[in-house]
């Protein structure tokens, strides 16, 4: 449904996007995961026809977007990162306007307005001014505005920035409903938890390039460890960290206060590791395990943390 091939865009000497390619099918959620400045928003801009690529091409259902009034734009709904709403107007007036941009008016517009307001749970606030909405409600209306013309492909640029957990969950529910309805969703975020929860496929971006792309499970397999073992030590004078890191099957070892964190290749090595610890001054009182995340993968691929990048 949505294809990007070798997209490139430079601003002066800055190569914002450098050869990005991917395909997203109907009913699929594709995530662009990367730190701020990775090129996600510029990529969305090129997909939506807002930014002209220096090279490469975008196809929607096999068709190019060509020109300001391209009919292919009707297949696209864009949810900008900003709260792109008129605060001075009511929710209904905003939706009427954004529907009209796609030619909707009269009964058809009213029907679509009811549909999207119900979807995002704002049907009872239609007549209220947007300036009176909470941040979470504005985010939901921001999504609704992009759905008025019932697009097949929805481009979401960090749609949950700055919202409370309740509104975030509500937005996730909305997106899962859209996915179930067969819509194609492209979702950018720098929150790995969101990407893991929502996305079928993910492209990890850094410095304008896709550095890895796969399903969530496939990406997690690229992590250098199968698990992390978090061990709460009794004392905070453990002196054998270097030796622990060099044990067979241990990929990484860090000590934070009294908590020792070991990255291991196999959970089968855990009993042996714990025995070694007890015999080397590492008496412990609690052990828990944690699976690696996309953050681990990003750190492994770039040497930097997603949040610090």
């Amino acid at each position: 449904m949505l294809t990007a091939e070798n997209l490139k865009k430079a601003y002066g000497s800055l190569q914002a996007v450098d050869g990005v390619s991917f395909r997203v099918g109907p009913g699929e959620v594709f995530g662009l995961l990367g730190p701020n400045g990775a090129g996600k928003t510029t990529t969305i801009g090129m997909l939506a026809g807002l930014v002209a690529p220096d090279s490469g091409e975008v196809r929607i259902a096999g068709h190019h977007i060509s020109g300001d009034t391209s009919p292919q734009k009707r297949r696209l709904g864009v949810v900008p990162q900003e709260l792109a709403l008129f605060d001075e107007l009511s929710a209904a007036a905003n939706l009427t306007l954004f529907g009209a941009l796609y030619g909707l008016s009269g009964a058809a517009e009213a029907k679509e307005q009811d549909r999207v307001l119900t979807l995002v749970g704002l049907a009872d606030r239609a007549k209220d001014k947007v300036s009176n909405f909470s941040g979470g409600m504005k985010r939901r209306l921001n999504l609704a505005a992009a759905l008025m013309h019932d697009p097949q492909v929805i481009l979401l640029d960090e749609p949950t920035v700055g919202v409370d957990p309740q509104s975030r969950n509500a937005i996730f529910d909305n997106l899962e409903t859209l996915k179930a309805a067969g819509k194609t969703l492209l979702y950018t975020t720098h929150y790995m938890e969101e990407a893991e929860r929502l996305c079928d496929h993910i492209a990890i971006m850094d410095h304008g390039k896709v550095i890895a792309t796969d399903t969530v499970a496939g990406l997690l397999r690229q992590a250098p460890v199968s698990s992390f073992v978090l061990i709460d030590l009794v004392a905070n004078d453990f002196a054998n960290l270097v030796e622990a890191a060099a044990l067979p099957g241990v990929v990484s070892a860090t000590l934070s206060g009294r908590q020792l964190r070991l990255g291991v290749q196999s959970m089968g090595d855990l009993p042996e590791l714990l025995r070694w610890l007890l015999s080397h001054g590492g008496e412990f009182e609690h052990v828990q395990t944690e699976r690696p995340t996309l953050e681990t993968v990003f750190l492994h691929l770039t040497g930097r943390s997603l949040r610090d990048a």
Partner: peptide, 10 residues
């Protein structure tokens, strides 16, 4: 960000 919405429309 409204300009993005307007320019995304046909």
């Amino acid at each position: 960000g409204l300009w993005r919405r307007f320019r995304a429309a046909p």
